[in-house]
């Protein structure tokens, strides 16, 4: 059986600058993998390349997701196959409400899976349960996506979208930057609730804030465009104690 996610010798550049210089990484089904590394090591680029961001050009290597070649798929095909990215800096969509976005997204996924679209009642029910759990108000659902929200609110809204869309592979890019303790607990709680056998997480971070609320199964240390070491969660303490220079 193929691995859940298998990245082999992945190279990517933006413009002329090579950022990923041969990334090798395997994530198993049902696991939480933390990717830790200093700023500028390529962590966010890795998430962008997995989701198909056209800003980055892949120059070598492969990404297999449940046996499928992700690099041959468009960003929407990857999303509908189960890949989700909670953005470090979520994009503002003036004029598009969160409810509108999620209805379009859920129906796109259901069309992809050859299921009927949700009717208005089912859709609102699906949204409301998750909104309540994450402290998302009706007013936040009606407002333009990410416009005029605080940093913490944007991160909660990213987590909310993840809970609504129920993807199999959740990438959280620096979710803990700019989050206070209460918001960290909410985001950490949502991840814990969503942990299950068929779903894996990739938590990108440069410190241990979120990892105090979500215990990772494995930790990968990234530096200068490569994964240097993969270990168990004891690595987090090592990073906090000694920094990244010792890897």
């Amino acid at each position: 059986m193929s691995a859940f996610l298998e990245i082999k010798d992945l190279h990517a550049k933006v413009g002329d600058k090579e950022i990923l210089k041969g990334v090798n990484l395997t994530i198993e089904s049902g696991k939480v993998m933390a990717i830790m590394g200093p700023n500028g090591c390529g962590k966010s680029t890795l998430s962008a390349v997995i989701t198909g961001n056209p800003t980055y050009q892949v120059t070598g290597g492969s990404i297999l997701f449940k046996g499928k070649d992700l690099l041959k798929m468009t960003p929407d095909e990857r999303a509908n196959a189960g890949v989700f990215l909670a953005f470090q800096r979520p994009t503002e969509l003036p004029g598009v409400s969160m409810a509108q976005l999620l209805k379009a997204a859920l129906n796109a996924k259901r069309t992809f899976l050859k299921e009927k679209p949700l009717d208005a009642v089912q859709f609102m029910k699906h949204l409301k349960v998750r909104a309540t759990a994450l402290g998302i108000t009706d007013e936040m659902l009606k407002r333009s996506v990410n416009v005029g929200f605080s940093g913490g609110e944007k991160k909660r809204l990213e987590t909310f979208q993840m809970a609504v869309l129920e993807p199999d592979f959740c990438i959280l890019d620096e979710m803990d930057s700019g989050l206070d303790v209460d918001a960290l607990k909410v985001v950490g709680g949502a991840i814990s609730v969503m942990r299950e056998e068929k779903r894996s997480f990739m938590i990108i971070t440069h410190h241990d804030d979120l990892l105090r609320y979500v215990a990772p199964d494995k930790v990968a240390i990234m530096r200068d465009g490569k994964i240097l070491q993969v270990g168990d969660k004891e690595l987090v303490a090592k990073v906090e104690e000694k920094g990244y220079d010792n890897f």
Binding site: N53, T74, D76, T91, Q100, A108, L165
Partner: peptide, 22 residues
């Protein structure tokens, strides 16, 4: 904006329509 919507599962043409409709 288009990429953000595509990562949520919308085809590029659907993303364009959603942005333009609003």
């Amino acid at each position: 904006e288009l990429f953000y919507l595509e990562t949520r599962g919308l085809k590029k043409s659907q993303a364009e329509k959603l942005l333009l409709s609003s």
